[in-house]
Amino acid sequence: MAGETALITEGLEKYYGSVHALRGVDLQVERGGIVGFLGPNGAGKTTTIRCMLDLIRPHAGTIRVLGLDPQADPVAVRRRVGYLPGELNLEQNMTGEDALRYFNQLRGNRVDWGYVRQLVDRLALDLKVAIKNLSRGNKQKVGLVQALMARPELLLLDEPTSGLDPLMQQEVYRLLRGAQAGGTTVFFSSHIISEVDAIAERIAIIRGGVIVEEAAPARLIDMAMRRVRVRFKTPVDPEALNQVNGVSVLSVDDGEVRLQVEGEMDGLIKTLAGFPVFDLETEHPSLEEVFLAHYANDREES
């Protein structure tokens, strides 16, 4: 249902010379959610986002942003989208206020300046200082305010907390949740897994220009391999456990067996029922481990 979808990309491909940066990105973001776009450097996060704003054009595939084609009507798309670039550069001789007023003018002076003041206060930003004298973190705050100030329907944020201290990162998370509560869809890229884990309702992992996973963080963790430690009352032959679908034995130490389980636990539990089990522990992987597992696959493939 296009009306309930904020973002759709299908088969998005992009080359930079001989580099195949996007190799068929398929992505769908429902309205009103917060979606984290996770991937290592060079995976295609920024390229995908910039295609959505018609700053660069894909060589193949389609994009729909809020039901609109960015190439056919880029101005209409940008009117409804707030964007924070990954490499934020502002005109150096402006103050923060000059920059925000200029961006407001580009938006047809539609911004509620009282809301800007609120954002500025929450981010503890001094708008009177020239951009050239601002620290990286404070420049990032100016970038965040300009992205949020028009209360856009969709926020496209490329590394939104880059350069911010941990306390300010938390404030940004609260701002993003607040924007979501106001009906805004938030799509943000990051390579900070804890950040994605903290606020994203769904995540998409991009690797080598392809979306390799797209699900809720909890679901991704569930789907991932988990470690199981079983202590038996008497030593057992681990081969029977090795036969279970999705299970591999990592180590056997006297009465303790360490296993790796992929997918559902049902087969293993039923098999273990035939053994004298003393204790059983399951370790859920963190999102970081899930992500690093994808990294590992990437390295193996390359």
């Binding site: 700053l55 101005v75 989208v81 550069n89 961006f103 938006r107």
Partner: peptide
């Protein structure tokens, strides 16, 4: 980049 991300 940022200027062109606005409705112009």
């Amino acid at each position: 980049d940022l200027i062109l991300a606005h409705p112009i």
